[in-house]
Amino acid sequence: MRVLGIESSCDETGVAVYDSDAGLIAHHLYSQVKLHADYGGVVPELASRDHIRKTLPMIQRVLRDSGSEPADIDGVAFTLGPGLVGALMVGSCIGRSLAYAWGVPAVGVHHMEGHLLAPMLEENPPSFPFVALLVSGGHTQLMRVDGIGQYELLGESLDDAAGEAFDKAAKMLDLDYPGGPQIAKLASRGTERFKFPRPMTDRPGLDFSFSGLKTYTLNTIAEHAGPDGLPDDQTMADIAYAFQDAVVDTLLIKCRRAVEQTGLKALIMAGGVSANQSLREKLQKVMAKKGVQVYYPRPEFCVDNGAMIAFAGCQRLLAGQTEDLGISVKARWPLTSLPALAG
């Protein structure tokens, strides 16, 4: 089965063609980062305006790149939620009507299921069951995954998501949006001068809280601030280092607990923050000691992309799931409410 996948839930337009026999055969990503940079975050109306301009030309291009004629496409998958309503509507409307015109089934994909299954696009994919750490701009969740649609929430952030914390800390440090890669870059010049707290690690459980780190970062900046309100460059780098270290360490502690609690021997990590090099290295090291195999997507598939939507959609279409002609995008949509796939 060959599936066209469309992602438009936030500030990335992603289109891909995935084939259940041949694997991923073409994909393209357009990031709106530059468009939103001046505003320090995503402006929903600008995002929607860009999606409606970019999506169809990208579909045409990806079809061409994949060597597919419309008649070769057996189904269309699009992100139905969660995300920005206006942005979701663009990909969903185009995807659903395209499937209708082609006379093929369509399926609305859960964005986080896309992220969660993204490691399966790599060589040597994980097999069920496994623990999943979803760390993105809007989510920080630990899941037990027994199959597609069989998700048990083990723990999640009670306030800010990890990616959101990176973005907010970056803003305090006067860095560009999105903040994750910027903090990581700055932290690489930092030293172990400050030690930030590891929130909620001193008590049992698998929930997270990152909003306190925000305050801690703000206070540390204020303590060392020069005349323009910011510390000197080295201190900035040291703060970035301490911040990243605290987030990474907190994630590691909870991941360790999750594999101990479940007894599972595989852990996957996905979502934008899983692109973080320090996190990847340390998680690998910690889990190797416990005999747990770690899986994550290539960095370009950690952030939003069309490939993960085409893949997740293909699995659901293969199982016979389809979407009606009426479209109801979902701003909020718990992952645990998805139906399980048989098999």
Binding site: S48, I52, L56, V90, I94, R96, S97, A101
Partner: peptide
């Protein structure tokens, strides 16, 4: 309505490109 316009254009794009 900005959203309304994009719904229509999105559906029209898909229908027209597909057919």
């Amino acid at each position: 309505s900005f959203t309304g316009l994009r719904i229509c254009v999105g559906i029209v794009q898909g229908l027209a490109f597909g057919a």
